[in-house]
Amino acid sequence: MGLTGALAERRDLVAFADEVGADGPVAVEGSRTRWSVGGEPIPGVRLVRAPSGVSAYLPEEMVVCVGAGTTVAELSSVLASSGQRCALPARGGTVGGAIAVGEQHLDVLGRGTLRASVLEVRYVSCDGRLVRGGGPTVKNVTGYDLPRLMTGALGTLGLLAEVILRTNPVPAASTWLRADGADPFAAFDALLHPSAVLWDGASTWVHLEGHPGDVAAQAAVLSRIAATTEVDGPPPLPPHRWSLEPSAIRGLTGRYVASVGTGLVLRDEPQPLRPPDAASLGVAARMKREFDPTGRLNPGRDPARR
């Protein structure tokens, strides 16, 4: 049973903590899907792998406990067998890698944010100890929110070993529609809870999910704005993720695919750095000193360069 119980009694977690140890620079290797986000690990750093596998899955509680080294694909197939899914991005890689980077699913409007889905984190600290933050229930305000802090921290505060994630039922119906010449902002306004509204400056792609009758009704709403065609999925996505305020995508030029309502934009070139303000960086620097004073965890990577 992986949901509760002392971490010290979990042989796989203890072995990972021992491997991380307390000395020398160390970095986690997953599938290298997001290897250079926030900077690459320094050359020659000792590499470790987090435990993998689903250690507990309770579909009726809508929670799953999974090793950080598990691939997103493997987790997704386990969840699908019970008609469920989670907020991890479909792009692949490992569970721990996606959480460490804090990458949202393209359907974030429908699936919810990744950060809200991480209920509990179990990680190895800079001194090789197993630490737990958060809790196994879907609702919990017990103490300080370590799961939120670890999500998107690029493994610079602790190395994720295992997480408990919230799962959700797979909607009964799902369809992707392309609407050429539609005003994507009008489409976003007219629809209730679309899972994604994508725009490349000319065409709009809409992902509708839910009960079959609702999906059909929403498709009819969209077809009143512009002619629609059913398509297999989103358009080909450029490789680099940009994070913009949603209103800023109105002014984009060049080649892009933008997610209306979220501000995620995919482009051919990387986004320029957008550092947080000085006071936030001050807190972040103190956070790093508190959690990893010698800077041994994932050296070379910096969440502020993400």
Partner: peptide, 29 residues
């Protein structure tokens, strides 16, 4: 307003703000 009197912007309206998720850590504090 941080306890030292500095003013910090935590999080952002964009989907994947740069830096640690101090917004998430602050809520419930």
């Amino acid at each position: 307003v941080l306890p030292d009197g500095e003013m910090a912007r935590l999080g952002g309206l964009d989907p994947e703000p740069s830096g640690l998720d101090l917004r998430g850590a602050f809520v419930g504090g």
